[in-house]
Simulated scan of single mutants.
Amino acid sequence: MTATHRVPWPHHRRRLERATDYWLSSTRPDGRPHVVPLWGVWQDGRLYFSTDPDSVKGRNLAAEPRAAVHLDGGQDVLVVEGTTARVDDDAVRARVDDAMAAKYLTPDGTAYRLAMDPPNRLWELRPERALAWWEALTGPTFTRWAWTGGPEPQPLPD
């Protein structure tokens, strides 16, 4: 298949950077999927988010770090698959915390800070593959990418 309407990666990177809601899919120990919305920031080619280690997703990610993330909507589809890991680097945590505060407000209008959820820990999704397509033109727009090192992926052949 020859794609004639492929969307370049920078379009999807901007969508990841600007998104307010991300849907994370993890796997329970018995193999059942678990999908939840979450807040996060896309920085340096990774998705950062926080969760309580004792939550379902926290326990799932600790046992099985492979996960997938997709954005809201089904017209301009983007799915990013990768491996998650806890982040304990103070410099990364500070940068992500500032980005979260700039991006999200709590219901009372306060800038969201990671410290507002004391049990939560910072996680990152290290992308390995991505799939994208425009639903109305699935065939000619379907594109796959792979990360081979660095923050930007490389397109995979059809």
Results as ranks from 00 to 15, higher is better:
Pro10Ile: 00
Gln75Thr: 04
Arg66Val: 05
Pro33Gln: 05
Glu81Met: 14
Gly40Glu: 09
Val79Ala: 13
Pro155Tyr: 06
Leu24His: 09
Val69Trp: 13
Gly74Tyr: 06
Pro155Lys: 03
Ala85Cys: 09
Ala101Asn: 07
Thr141Phe: 11
Tyr112Asp: 13
Gly82Cys: 09
Gln75Cys: 02
Val80Pro: 10
Gly150Tyr: 02
Val41Gln: 11
Thr51Arg: 07
Val7Cys: 14
Pro151Ile: 03
Asp108Gln: 00
Thr84Gly: 06
Tyr48Ile: 08
Arg15Phe: 04
Asp88His: 13
Asp89Tyr: 02
Arg95Thr: 01
Arg46Gly: 15
Leu131Trp: 06
Gly74Thr: 07
Ala94Tyr: 05
Trp147Phe: 11
Thr138Glu: 14
Ala94Met: 06
Trp145Met: 02
His70Gly: 11
Asp72Val: 01
Leu131His: 08
Val56Asn: 11
Arg113Lys: 05
Arg66Met: 05
Val35His: 06
Ala62Asn: 08
Ala111Lys: 04
Gly150Met: 02
His12Met: 08
Ala115Leu: 06
Val56Pro: 14
Tyr22Arg: 01
Arg15His: 08
Gly40Thr: 05
Gly82Ile: 04
Leu122Pro: 00
Gln154Lys: 15
Val79Asp: 12
Val77His: 01
Val56Phe: 09
Arg93Leu: 12
Val79Glu: 15
Ser26Lys: 05
Ala130Met: 08
Met100Leu: 01
Val41Thr: 09
Ser50Gly: 04
Pro10Asn: 03
Gly82Arg: 08
Val87Tyr: 10
Gly109Lys: 00
Pro37Met: 03
Asp89Gly: 02
Val87His: 12
Asp21Cys: 13
Gly58Gln: 01
Leu131Met: 04
